[in-house]
Amino acid sequence: MLHLPGPLYLQIVSHCLGGLPDEACGLVAGDPATGEVAACYPTRNLAASAKLYTVDPKEHLRADRDAGDRGLEILGVFHSHTHTEAYPSPTDVAQAPDPTWHYIIVSLRDTHPVLRSYRIRDGKVTEEQVLVSAR
């Protein structure tokens, strides 16, 4: 399960909308034991594409250090799908680096953004529940 405080949920969706027409991406950090997200790091999409994303490596390093300074760990990545549903694409599955990470996808295909989260282990995709709390 992914526990996402409301303000961070809004930050993720807002960054994804702001990235249109391209895909947007970023990292989330928190406590790996509980899956509770405590920080969100919107990053540039170096691929600058409506179909691909690449988290800017320098921003990733900064996020990783900031999370470490705050006693957190990078727990996963979010990115948007501009014209498809919120489900990992074959590219997402092939390039998923870490089986312990949460893979959050925001679909902007329909009138309202749809946020879903997955675990990807050995090419197998499992959806997880997302609990959005007030704060």
Binding site: Y53, T54, D64, T91, D92
Partner: peptide
Amino acid sequence: ISILPAVAGG
């Protein structure tokens, strides 16, 4: 020196 995963997808 730091090593991090390259994070990308589609």
